[in-house]
Amino acid sequence: MDIAGSSAPAPGKHTLLGLHDVSVRYKSRRGSVLALEDFNLQVEPSSFVSVLGPSGCGKSTLVRLVAGLQAPSTGEIRFDGVAARGAREDVGVAFQQSALLPWKTSLENVLLPIRLTGKSVQQALPRAQALLELVGLKDFQDRYPHELSGGMQQRVAVARSLIRDPSILVMDEPFAALDAMTRETMMIELQRIWMQTRPSVLFITHSIQEAVFLSDRVVVMSGRPGKVIEDLPIDLPRPRDVGTLALPRFAELSNHLRDMLGQR
């Protein structure tokens, strides 16, 4: 099954996504709030980067910036070194809620990005079906979201975010609404899906376990205004499995991150 399209960039050291001195200021009636300040972040092609931070540290703002839903107040966002504005076709987004259209089946939901761009849905059909198979929902393509469990809905959302073969996938706490058991399954599933498709992933989470298990690098943000206070490479071998969670190195990395989050 060829999921990774031809446009996927070869792994290399150049930067796919770069945020340079990005600040975001919200204006409200009670004055202005600085959500992000001088934020710098580089994501290499095909790498998995998690962003970890306390509630209200501007993680959601970060997602909206990269997804093109919002422009920075100052600073610049670059894709492949080129300054970018607005939504981009090579960025896939998976939201905290699955954000599926309740009146469309799984398959139709996965095909939505194709339908909206006016490309041939017929042509994209085999790929949509392959993606549903990849996320383990081969037999559920004709089901509606309300007939699926929360975890399954999130899988459909992941399949949809991959349909346009993005070079970067932004995931905003995609498992936050799921129960603990499902979260662990989804974590392992996501690694498998990512290793088969290899987009860059910017994974926003407040779960240390998810961040360490999934990532090549974990970026820790401080509370408001959000700044990078740690950029930790995760040197655990892949593929990681349930056994990885029990490794001393896993505990060591987790504890370090826990300290980083705790001391601020």
Binding site: A67, L69, A87, L101, L112, L116
Partner: peptide, 24 residues
Amino acid sequence: PVLLDLFRTLNASTFKTYLHCNLP
């Protein structure tokens, strides 16, 4: 709002957003 955000990330036109999201 989350659906409208989704449509924005997909660069959907106002008309298509209306047709596939707001109207249903």
